[in-house]
Amino acid sequence: MSVFLSSLGFGIISAAVLAIATVGFTMQFAVTNVLNLAYGSVMINSAFVTYFLNIHGHLNAWVALIGGVATGSVASYLLNRFVYTPFQRRNLAPITIVIVALGVDLCGTFGLQAIVGGSYFTYRQSQGREWHFLGMYFSTLQLTIIAIALGVMIAVAWLLRYTRLGKAMRATSANPNLARNSGVRTQSVISTTWLISGALAGLAGTVFAMNTGVFEATSAQLYIVLLLAAMFLGGPGEPYGAMLGAATIGIATELSAAFINPQYKMVIAFVILLGMLTFRPYGLFGSERTA
């Protein structure tokens, strides 16, 4: 029982990090129609910017995080502006954009590795004291990450449901031509979406690195499997589904690590992904339209 509860605790933290990342990832996909496989690369590059500000800029890690968030936001905007949009304008098949994204991911990850090398890095940051809840153990840092994730979920839900921009984002996602006929400047909405979702990638990358303690340039390379599994579980392009998907995948992978083998974490996520694609490709929250 204690193994189960401590694994559940790890699962909740993993789910919190994954939720931040998946909400940005699925929002990006819904509004821009780009399956940005370079998302993990943006995450880890942002984490390294936070690292350099923290270690070499002598900034507190939470202050340095602002630099990581800004990096994710700007990098994603530029990625869309100078890489994806030119390809999309040529009306190429969606698979072409996926391949381009894969190329960007490899360039981003291994380009970073060429700069920082293959060493392991860690932030100068305390984990804080340990807290016990119902047989689960959390550090202050982990509780802070969970609180950030909850805050992000509430902010994104509020953005999408109650703001003019959020409604325009959902309208652009549902029917871009009709949105334009209603006066929505969809290009501007799409650019803003890249900025917001990129900021979430930057935030997710940094808290991911904080949570793992040590990280390297390729640490987020397989993270895309978790992102895809969480997104397809919730429903592609469904931010609320992404939250549920992230919670499920985060907890399932950590429990499987405790009871099966830690090396099978990604395999479990991949099996869930395959299962969803086979039996309900539009996910728990999606409709057939989104599949």
């Binding site: 409604k167 959902r170 309208a171 996602s173 549902a174 029917n175 031509n177 009709l178 409709s287 339209r289």
Partner: peptide, 10 residues
């Protein structure tokens, strides 16, 4: 338009 004349998820 003839089809896709509303935003279904909204």
């Amino acid at each position: 338009p003839q089809v896709d004349d509303v935003f279904p998820p909204l």
